[in-house]
Amino acid sequence: MIRAPFQLHRPHSIDEAVRLLSQCVQNGEDVKLLAGGQSLMPSMNLGLVAPAHIVSLNHVAGLDSIRRDGDMLAIGAGTTHHALAESEVVQAHCPILSETAACIGDVQVRNRGTLGGSIGHFDPAADYPPVLVLLDAACQIVSPSGERTVAAKDVFVDYMTTSLSADEVLTEIRVPVLPSDTGTAYVKFTRVEGGFAIVGAGACLRLNPDNTCRSIRVGICGAAPVPVRLTAIEDTLTGKAVDDAFVEMVAAAAYESAHDPVAELHADADYKREMVRVFTRRAVKTAWERAD
C-alpha cells in the first residue's frame, strides 16, 4: 500500500485527461499522469513522489496504435515496449526503434512500460531518448489550449526535465520510415542484463554505391544529462569512404561530445566517457554491417 493518499482519476478520452490535469494545476494541486507505472509506481512506493492526484491513461482507447502515415510512422504514446519490439511495421521501417524497445529492462517491464511514459519520465539513462533524437522524431502534445508538435530534441531539456508542462499529455510520436538500405543499431552498456544503460549509442548509416557515406546519424545517452547528437561530424562525414578509420572518427567525436557525463555508482565520469567511445564504435560498426 502506498502511504500518501491521492485521488485516482480514470478518464476515457485525452480531452477529459487534459481537463482533469488543468483543473488540478489551476487549484495548485500536484498531479501526475499514470501510464505503465514502471517508473511512477516504484517512486511512489518509495515515497519519493506523492502527487495529490493521479490521472490514469490506461482507460483511454486508441493510445497504443501504430500506423504508417506516408513517410512517417505514427506511434501512440501508450504503446508498450513489448508491442514496439514485436511490431512488424516498426521492425520493417524503423528497426532501430524495435531494437531499442527490446533491450529495455526485462519482460515484465516491457509488457507494461510505454513509450510515452519513458519520454515523460525522461531518465537520463533511458534508451529511447537518444534514438528519438537521432531519428528527428516529433512528439504530438495536447494541452488545454490545443495541440502542438515538438521535436524530440526540444522535449529533453535538462536532467530529468522535459518541456511538457503538468497539464499536457503526449499522445503520439512520429518517426521517419527509414529507406530500406539504412543500416541501424542501438547498443547499450549495462552492469547486468535488464539494467539501465550506463551508456547507450544508436546509429543509422546509409551508403552510396561506391561505399561512401550517404548519411549518418548518431545519438548517445550517458554522455551528458540530455541525449547527445553528433550533428557536426554527421555533416562532415557525408561523402567520406566508410572504413575502419571512418568508424574511429565517429567514436572520437562521440568521446569529445561526452563533455558532461553524469557520474554514478558503477561508473565515474572518465570511465563513462571512455565507454561512450567504445559503444559508439560498436553501434556504427553494427549499422555499417547492416547497411546494404
Binding site: 509506481m41 515484465q108 517491464v109 509488457n111 507494461r112
Partner: peptide
Amino acid sequence: ATGNCGACTVMLDGLTVKACTIL
C-alpha cells in the same frame, strides 16, 4: 516494491507483469 525483483509477477490479460507496479 520497486519493480526489480519479480517476486510479485502475475499474468495480467495474458502477459506477465510486476504486481507491485500496478494499482
